[in-house]
Design a binder for these strands. Sequence first.
DNA 1: ATAAACCCTCCCATCATGGGAAGGTCAAGA
DNA 2: TCTTGACCTTCCCATGATGGGAGGGTTTAT
Lengths: 130, 130
Amino acid sequence: MNIGEAAAASGVSPKMIRYYEEVGLLPSAARTASGYRSYGESDIHRFRFVRRSRDFGFSMEQIGNLLVLWADRARPSKEVKEIALAHVAGLDEKIRHLTELRDVLNHLAHQCHGDNRPECPILQDLERPA
Amino acid sequence: MNIGEAAAASGVSPKMIRYYEEVGLLPSAARTASGYRSYGESDIHRFRFVRRSRDFGFSMEQIGNLLVLWADRARPSKEVKEIALAHVAGLDEKIRHLTELRDVLNHLAHQCHGDNRPECPILQDLERPA
DNA sequence: ATAAACCCTCCCATCATGGGAAGGTCAAGA
DNA sequence: TCTTGACCTTCCCATGATGGGAGGGTTTAT
C-alpha cells in the first residue's frame, strides 16, 4: 500500500506519517524498488492508534510509550492506566485554568456597558499591573 | 530606562519586548546614542497591558486591536466588549472540547483494572478506527 | 506515448517563547 | 585610568505538530 492509500485508510496525512517516521515514533517503512514507502494492514492499524491517541490530546512522547505497551502482549494494564490518568490530570489542569480565565473575563465583559461610551472596565483591568 | 529595567518593571521579557516591536505590536523604541532601546513610564504601562492581555490568553492579533482601542480615548466600549466576548466564546469552545476528552478518557481509565494483567480497555479503544 | 496523479526529499512557515553566540557599551571598584 | 562584569545589540536556531510548495522521479490509465 502506498503512503497515500495508507493515509486515507488511517486518517493520518502522508506528511505526518513521514514525520512520525523521521522522529522515531513509527518504525522505518519498507520501500519498493523505486523508493516508495510500502505499508500493510498492521501499519494501518498502528497509524490509527496514533491518530486516535492524538485526537485524545496525548503528546508524541506519551504516544511513544503507549505504542510500546500496545505492542507488548504481556504489558501490565497498570502502566497504561498510569499514562492515561496522568493525561487526565493534565487536562483537568488546563480546564481549570481556562475556566478561571473565562470566568474572570466574562465577569468583566458583563460589567461593560458595550455602547458608544469609552468607559470600559475590561480595559481598566487590562492596564492593571499583573 | 533600559530594556532590562523595563522588562523587570512590566513583567515582559526583553526578548519579547524586542519581538513585539519587530512584528509591529509595539511601536519602535527610542534609542540612546549608542543604540540602546530607551523606555519611559508610558511604555511600561503599555507592556503591562500586553502582558496582562497575554495572561488572559488573547492572541497577538486581538491584543493589537485592544491596544488601538486602549489608546483611543473616544473608543466605543462596545468594540472592546465584542473582542472580549469573542475570546470568551473561544475559551468556552476549548473548555468544552477538553472536558469531553477528559470525560471519555477518565471513563476508560476507570474501566481499566490497572494491575499486572494485559487486558486494557484504554488500548482497546485507542486501536479503534476514528 | 502522454498526461494525470502519485511519490520522493528538502526547505520554509506557523505561534510565542527561549537559548546562545559574537560583539559593543556602561558603571563600579582597584 | 584600567579592568571586570553586567548590560545591550543583532542574528541564528529550537521548540511541537502541522501544512505548503518546489523540483524531480514513478506509476497508471487513457
